[in-house]
Nucleic acid binder design. Structure first.
Lengths: 193, 193
DNA sequence: TTGACATGAGAATGAACGTTCTCCTATAGT
DNA sequence: ACTATAGGAGAACGTTCATTCTCATGTCAA
């Protein structure tokens, strides 16, 4: 099959997606060329195009991949706090706060990508919307598990707060909006007892 | 001085900014070329560059201009509802909901611009952050005028909700997040009585 | 009228970038 | 060993775009 020295398709795809994740998030889709992906991943342009026939398709693959990665990170962060006895719906904000404090934080990759009209097509838009729907579904399930009144309503309210927190923390380069959002979430949760 | 048939600098600037506002918001900064601005405004490239020495400076002028325009629209919308007897902090969400229902809605221009790393520089980022600070100041003043406990805290919570509502309405192409945000704001306001 | 200057229309320049192509190496199956 | 094929390196192509330049026109002050 493949020689030991080179990567098989699955390995090459993984390398490309890893680079795409780093570089698209850091510099935006329009700010990254295919040559940048090649330089970062070590996968040649030729192979890159054999794996992903166009930049659009690479972006779609990246968004899909990032959805999985992000949701795994997010749910496991919440889980960790849940087992530590914290209210999961509040733990969500702690996870975001920790992320926002880390170097290179630029807000939500999906929101940022959606803002780049020139680089985004309808396929991308659908992936992004599906990601937000998925996040909402998860938050609603947390609200349901918590036994609150009107879990769907509570979950949606928390969802708007979370997105606002991610965006404002990036724009203002501060965790203060996340603190305010968490604070608000606590009030909403109290009111849903 | 200037011939009657041509525009003086002030008129040309106004025409350029009007076009910039339409086209940068609709297609993003990277999605618009200087030639597009010329085509839309009728101001020649040469004059365009004599008014704004670079695209960066045009973008900065647009952001500054849009801040003024948007804040005027927003505060007057809130005022209109205030005189109609509605709680101003809730009227804010109604204003956003009406905007989001109008054709061409693409979320908050400042958030979208901040997401375009490749096109945005530090000057732009400062204008954007100042806009959000200004919005926050206004919301806090509304909370203060409403006589609520901890108006700064309430204003900041409403601010995160508003931004989340604008973003999510754009991403999901739905007013539902705005409704959820308004709903949450009502609970927060109640809790601040 | 004449010369200095502003302006418009749009061509030219130079860089960036998505995508394809060429040349060359190395491997795998025979 | 021999050929067909995959893959790498990176040049080449075609386009887009910010920015500048040229040429032609028109205006104002004298």
């Amino acid at each position: 099959m493949s020689p030991a020295a080179t990567l098989d398709n699955a390995q090459a795809r993984a390398a490309v997606l890893r680079s795409a994740n780093a570089v698209f998030y850091a510099r935006g889709i329009a700010g990254v060329g295919m040559a940048d992906i090649r330089n970062d991943s070590g996968v040649s342009l030729r192979r890159l195009y054999s794996l992903y026939p166009s930049k659009r398709e690479l972006v779609a693959a990246w968004l899909t991949d990032r959805h999985t990665i992000w949701m795994e990170w997010f749910t496991s962060s919440v889980d960790r706090c849940r087992t530590a006895g914290e209210e999961p719906l509040l733990a969500a904000f702690d996870a975001i706060a920790e992320w926002a404090s880390s170097p290179g934080y630029r807000g939500c990759a999906f929101v940022n990508s959606a803002a780049e009209t020139a680089e985004i097509d309808d396929t991308h838009r659908r992936i992004i919307a599906a990601h937000k729907e998925s996040l909402l579904t998860y938050l609603i399930s947390l609200a349901r598990d918590g036994g609150y009144a009107e879990p769907e309503r509570l979950g949606r309210m928390i969802g708007v707060l979370l997105d606002g927190a991610m965006v404002d923390a990036a724009v203002l380069r501060s965790c203060e909006p996340i603190v305010a959002a968490r604070d608000a979430a606590a009030v909403l949760i109290d009111a849903s007892q």
